[in-house]
Design a protein around this nucleic acid. Structure first.
Lengths: 194, 194
DNA sequence: GTCTATAAGAGGATAGAC
DNA sequence: GTCTATCCTCTTATAGAC
C-alpha cells in the first residue's frame, strides 16, 4: 500500500516537474494531483526537494533499464547504442515525462548530492555511457577531436533541449519527425556532410 | 540621469538573470545590487516581468549589432556569419551575461509578447539569421536535410546550452577551448566525419 | 497515515512623506 | 524620484486531532 501510494506521488511529481519545472511546481499542486492532503505528503517525503530527488531517481532507473536493454543487443555497435539511448531521452522529454530541475538552485543541489541512491545512479549511468563513447571513438564512429567528457555532457544535455518544445509548439510536425531532426542535429551537426 | 540610472538597473537585472534565472532572482536583490530602494525600482519598471523584458531587449540589441557587424564583412560566407554569431552567443553566455528565462512562465510570457520593442527585435533577429541559413543551404555549407526552422531553433538554443556551464564548472578548460568545443558539437556534430 | 488548521516567512507590490 | 514602512498573497512546512 505504502509503496503504491508513494509511486503515485512520484508520478505526479514527475509530470509536474516536466510540465512546469521545479520552481513553478508547488507542493499544494502535487497534493491536489495525487488526491491527498498536503500534510500527508510530508509523511512520505521530508521536503519539496526530496520529492524532486525521488522523481530524478525514478527517471534515472528508467534510463539505466534502457541502457541495459541496449547492452543486451550483442550485435549493436557502441555508436548505435548511444544513438538509441539518446533517442529514448528525446522521446521521454517530448512525451512530457522528463523532470527538469534548475541547475543553480542550492538547496535542491544539497538535497540531491546528499542522496546516495541518486548520486550512485548518476555515476552508474555516466560510466555506462562513458564506456560506449570511448568504444565508439575507437571504432571511428564518433569524432576523436572531442574529449569523451564533452561528448557525455552534450548527450546529457539532450534531456533538457528546448528545441523539442519549440518544434512541438508549432503543431506542424509529428513527434517522430521532431525526434529524428534533433537527433540528426546532435549527431550529424548542422554543417553539410560530403 | 534617468537614462543612466535605468541602464544601471538593466545591467544588474541582466547579470542576476544570467546568474540565477528569473524565478530565483528577487526584486530585493536587484534593488540592493543597484543601490536604491525597491520602491524606486518600481518607479522605473512596472513589474519584475518588465525588468526581465528590458534585459532581453538589451541583449537582443547587442545581438543585432553583432549581426550587422557581420553583414559588413562582404567577403564572409553566410555560413561563416552564422558561425561568428553563434560563437558570440556562446561567449556571452560563458561570460555570465546571457539572461535566462523560463520558457513556460505564463505571466512572463504575457509581458514579453505585449512588449512591441521586444517582439520586433525577436522578429528582426530571426529574419536576419533566417536569410543566412537559406543562403548557407544554397551554398551547400549547411545540410539541406533540415528545414531552416530547425536550424534556427538549434542556433537559438545555444544561448541556454548547459554544456558550457558544465565544462566551466570542472575548472580544467579555458573559455576559448570550451567555446570551440561546443561550437564544433553544434556545427559538426558528434559523429566522425570522413 | 490521513485530515483540518495554522504557523512562519519569503517576495512582489504599494502608500505616503519628503 | 527617492526613501521607509507596510500590505498582502503565495508557499513551505508543521501541530495536533482522529
Amino acid at each position: 500500500m505504502l509503496r503504491v501510494r508513494e509511486d503515485a506521488i512520484v508520478s505526479s511529481v514527475n509530470r509536474l516537474l516536466a510540465e512546469k519545472g521545479f520552481d513553478a511546481m508547488t507542493v499544494d499542486e502535487v497534493a491536489a494531483d495525487v488526491g491527498i492532503a498536503k500534510a500527508s505528503l510530508y509523511k512520505h517525503f521530508a521536503s519539496k526537494e526530496a520529492l524532486a530527488a525521488a522523481a530524478m531517481v525514478r527517471v534515472l532507473e528508467r534510463a539505466l533499464q534502457t541502457i541495459e536493454s541496449q547492452s543486451a543487443h550483442a550485435e549493436a555497435s557502441a555508436f548505435e547504442r548511444l544513438r538509441a539511448v539518446t533517442r529514448w531521452t528525446l522521446e521521454v522529454q517530448l512525451a512530457g515525462e522528463m523532470p527538469s530541475l534548475p541547475s543553480q538552485n542550492s538547496s535542491l543541489r544539497t538535497t540531491l548530492i546528499a542522496d546516495k541512491v541518486y548520486v550512485d545512479l548518476v555515476m552508474e549511468v555516466s560510466e555506462r555511457i562513458g564506456e560506449w563513447i570511448v568504444q565508439a571513438q575507437a571504432d571511428g564512429a564518433i569524432t576523436p577531436k572531442l574529449p569523451p567528457e564533452v561528448i557525455l555532457y552534450t548527450l546529457f544535455a539532450r534531456a533538457c533541449d528546448p528545441v523539442l518544445g519549440f518544434l512541438k509548439a508549432t503543431g506542424q510536425h509529428s513527434d517522430e519527425q521532431i525526434v529524428d531532426w534533433v537527433l540528426s542535429t546532435c549527431l550529424d551537426g548542422l554543417a553539410a556532410r560530403p
